[in-house]
Design a protein around this nucleic acid. Sequence first.
DNA 1: CTCTCAAGCTACTCACCCGTAGGCTACCCG
DNA 2: CGGGTAGCCTACGGGTGAGTAGCTTGAGAG
Lengths: 218, 218
Amino acid sequence: MSEDDQRPPERARRLPRAVRERQILDAAVQVFSRHGYHAASMDEISDVAGVSKPMIYTYLGSKEDLFGACIRREATRLLEAIQAGVKPDLPPDMQLWHGLRSFYRFVAEYRESWTVLHRQALTVGGAFAAEVTDMRVRAIQLVAALVVSAGTRKGVGEQAEFSGEGLSAALVGAAESLADWALDHPDISDGVLASWLMNLVWLGFNDLIEGEVWKPSE
Amino acid sequence: MSEDDQRPPERARRLPRAVRERQILDAAVQVFSRHGYHAASMDEISDVAGVSKPMIYTYLGSKEDLFGACIRREATRLLEAIQAGVKPDLPPDMQLWHGLRSFYRFVAEYRESWTVLHRQALTVGGAFAAEVTDMRVRAIQLVAALVVSAGTRKGVGEQAEFSGEGLSAALVGAAESLADWALDHPDISDGVLASWLMNLVWLGFNDLIEGEVWKPSE
DNA sequence: CTCTCAAGCTACTCACCCGTAGGCTACCCG
DNA sequence: CGGGTAGCCTACGGGTGAGTAGCTTGAGAG
């Protein structure tokens, strides 16, 4: 035990920049998702990444830059995962269903990515919040387009009890909350989750565009 | 301008403890809702409250204690506001509608309270997150009770496409997201918001318990 | 008028953490 | 073999902010 106790053979060799950046981003997402932006320390991130702190600064810039890089990478991942599952020539309801399935599959597989995007990014304020909000708005508008498409196909106009944008905001929120709920119930498959939401919303929406409206009684 | 420039008459006189605590809590909610827990500084809170920092510590304890006091006060306010609007002997759908109206009225009036509870409390982690989550779970269970009551009244059992708890989680999430959306659209009344949600969810739910189910085609 | 007590403040300590200066070592090319 | 370069580190500066020590001042009692 004189020259062997320092683990000389495997000492995290010199690696190309791309690999280190991946390690750093992975660690950053993990730490940010656990503690949030402000409570996360660069020391802990460097520790988790198995890299010293100056590496982070030379490769990815300041803490804010690093957080931005995380947000962008995870947002891109999420959008790509959803678009990969969507089939553009299906009817609107099936498009929505497939999009939802991909979404729930992604959240289950990369729950830290989802946490960073959904919970932490909004609390930082400034450019990132705007960026994530933008992504969310795009998602809402996408859904709104499907909804309106289905609505006009059935020949429905503007109604007092109906706002495509508000409805889509509610739908996206329902999808997100169900995602959070599903994190605690891993045995529910993504198909079942998507079907629940379709049954909730689509059926109600169908009624609505067919003129059947809920009103407060008396 | 020799003896009048220091505003000698009104100099924030010595006040009873209860009043100071209120001032401090109001300021804390405001600052926490703007910056989040970690980015908020005790100096800014004391500044906004018009009180020096040691006062906060003698009256309300550490920063964590202060945040806890904020959360508890605002959560109590919210629950009381909702319960004040609910009429227990109405049918389930009307109970839900009245609860939603009260909720949206509260969010519009005390948007900072809502922000602290919904966005900031979860990111701190630990006891507060648990506390807020508990409140949310109680809300979900309350809604689930209404939903199940309406379901059994119409004689529906367990179905594969249906889970009361999951549905309620989605509903509560939809309500929350619509609340966020409504913050940017102040001209929409609380009654309209509540009606939108009822049309979305209740109609779909009605279809569901009457056996009309959405299924993916092919 | 004076003594006492509590309300309230200024100014400080100490710890934490972002960001960096400067040095070391392995690999590559001539 | 020697210089250059790129991967990588230890160790520190500086700023910020939580929490506190100890003083000042107003108000009531005698």
